[in-house]
Amino acid sequence: MDWTLLLIQMLNGLQLGVLLFLLASGLTLVFGIMDFVNLAHGSFYMVGAFVCASLTFFTGNFLIGVILAIPVVALVGVITEKIVVQQLYARDHLDHVLATFGLILCFDTLVHMIWGAQGIAVPLPKWLDGQVELFGGIVFPTFRLLIIGTGLTIAFGLYYLVNHTRLGMLIRAGASNRTMVSALGVDIQLLFSLVFALGAVLAGLAGMLISPITEASIGMGNEIIITAFVVIIVGGIGSMKGAFIAAMIIGLIDTLGRSFLDDMFKVFMSAPAAETSAPAVSAMLIYILMAAILAVRPQGLFPPKVR
């Protein structure tokens, strides 16, 4: 086994895990507090990437682009919440799913109208575009390292926000008993808007961070959102800790499965058989993992205690 390659792939897995966490944390926050299922969460991921791309070209600097794009995505989130989502809180999950499915169509088309059908590649500043040498002679792209660092910082920030601030206290209280929180005189509508915007920003940020690697494209959110769903199902819907741990597990397993499964299969089957079956199995690996975990724990690894 090639240990250098293994370490590099683990870092790649970590990077995917961090992105998944950014998406899943917003989903799980919104679900935990408002009991709202948002299929259109991936649209914020896409909108983030496109807005960031435009602002990067406008300002000439990727980092400034990201910083300016964050309030734009927050605004998009707030507007979405005010116009559509607010009407849906009192409805059942089926209505949430259907209406946000309609929202996806709207977002995809609006992006198509504004930015055109082609994807946009986002250029990185020179100092981010290279590679750095890590311990033991491992060479890894600087930007991917930055993604991991940003993601982990945000994960820590979210932990602090939820557990050690007044807003976090309200968020936790809202998750356990919404009616009581509003009866105590908290503006629950404002809290909902804030949390929704926070979720949108987290998803948007994930889109901004990935855009220099994959480019901003229409429908990019629709693919990754399912993986984010798998993450929050495995972690337990509504649990921040579950989302973080599940995101890391799924990021690692998906990445390692894609790169090493054929080698592992060759141990116990013929090379051609391994070559054909490994891609199929690695494509399904995270879903098989999800099924296995659910067969044992139908509520996920860390189901929130109060619902």
């Binding site: 299922v37 999950h93 879903y287 999800m290």
Partner: peptide
């Protein structure tokens, strides 16, 4: 074995699993 929103997301994920299975079959 699950209810509500879990069921929605799990059936979705299983559907996507078949999607990726056929994508990977060259």
């Amino acid at each position: 074995r699950t209810r509500g929103v879990y069921f929605i997301m799990i059936t979705m994920a299983f559907g996507q699993m078949v999607f990726f299975l056929f994508v990977s079959m060259e």
